[in-house]
């Protein structure tokens, strides 16, 4: 069967190009589908995620890619970004696609692993690696890292720097802002919804 040719194929591309945060000239339209991104993508080696084919969908205006579960396997190592010979950035395209999915409310489940980052803002006033990652990281990186991490304020003090975490006052201020703008509610909603499903 002949497939219908999309007349408005560049709509999705345009939306993404205008939302990409890359400071470099955009290469999305210059993609020649060489597949170099996929060949270096660690996620592609262990899942069905394929950055080239994701970009292909975007260029063809195939909005089904927004609902594609595979786009959530990218973990932003930026290797595709640094290697693309056409100056495209598949991982940043991915970020915009995910944002569209989040905005449509179809990606809450995928946000669960990221909630820790939100907690960090709420509880410490700054972004940081969520605490629930620490045990695994300690195992992966080693005791030296943990030692450095736990004594970071001493090191900073020695260098004449302020502590990593802002003052209690500042933390309260940030968290007040986050609460009144609905950030905390949003996080709780996602978390509770997830628990309910369990």
């Amino acid at each position: 069967m002949v497939e219908k040719f999309r007349e408005d194929s560049l709509d999705l591309e345009e939306y993404i190009s205008h939302n990409i945060k890359s400071s470099k000239p955009k290469g999305l339209l210059k993609c020649v589908q060489c597949g170099m991104c996929t060949s270096v993508c660690p996620a592609a080696q262990h899942s069905n995620y394929n950055p080239r084919s994701m970009v292909e969908c975007v260029l063809e205006g195939d909005t089904a890619v927004i609902e594609d579960e595979d786009i959530w396997y990218c973990f932003y190592c930026y290797t595709c970004h640094s290697i693309c010979p056409a100056d495209n950035s598949p991982c940043e395209v991915n970020q915009v696609l995910r944002q569209i999915a989040v905005d449509k409310g179809i990606a809450d489940d995928h946000l669960i692993p990221f909630l820790g980052f939100g907690d960090s803002f709420l509880n410490h006033g700054i972004g940081g690696i969520p605490e629930n990652f620490f045990p695994e990281m300690k195992e992966d990186i080693g005791d030296d890292w943990w030692d450095f991490k736990t004594h970071l304020d001493d090191v900073r003090n020695h260098l004449g720097l302020d502590p990593v975490f802002p003052s209690e006052e500042a933390i309260v201020e940030v968290s007040t802002i986050l609460k009144s703008c609905g950030f905390e509610d949003r996080i709780n909603k996602i978390r509770n919804h997830h628990k309910d499903e369990d």
Partner: peptide, 27 residues
């Protein structure tokens, strides 16, 4: 093979070329 290889590595004494065959969409 239509695809631009991303890297060449050595595994078990062999050179390995990592590439996506973009026509069959297989890595």
């Amino acid at each position: 093979m239509r695809g631009r290889p991303g890297e060449v590595v050595k595994k078990d004494g062999n050179l390995i070329v990592r590439v996506e065959d973009t026509l069959t969409r297989k890595f």
